[in-house]
Amino acid sequence: MRWTSSDMDMYMKEKEYVDTAVIPMLPVSFGSDMKQAASMAEFIALLTNQLERQFRGRLVLLPGYTYFKNDSEKSLEGVKNWERELGKDQFKHVFIVTADTEWKKHERNLSSSLIWLPSIPLEHMDENYKVSIIEDQVKQLMHLFIQKWRESE
């Protein structure tokens, strides 16, 4: 489900079936790595969107977590806040999807599952090629999700 009012209606009704929240991590930077940050955000947004289409009945795709790339302390606090807030509700699984290696360092401090994927530069890519690449990545992500779900049963 997406973060839209119509999908939230569905969520209210079928709450017991929805146990997973996905937070896409969208970095923002105005320094030298501006372009890199943008390409990461683009890639993660596309990827999580496709993932939602596959698993829309079991997960809620939250609006992305936007953070400044050069301020990792503060962003970490923010993420922990999200985790606390989501843990209160009945999300058994919280997945953080990112392309930023910075988060890998903080993985120990996070209670949710951090999924790091290398960002693929999509800017010069042909539309068809782009779609097939994203699809491949989504398939891998799906396996990870299914695996995690199976583990907890």
Binding site: E14, Y17, V18, R53, Q54, F55, R56, G57, R58, W149
Partner: peptide, 23 residues
């Protein structure tokens, strides 16, 4: 059920059925 995407034979226990991975 809730709109996930099913696929053919993706459940190893039921290779000749459509399977929804969500529930």
């Amino acid at each position: 059920h809730l709109g996930c995407v099913v696929s053919w034979g993706s459940d190893s226990a039921n290779p000749d059925m459509f399977f929804c991975p969500c529930h």
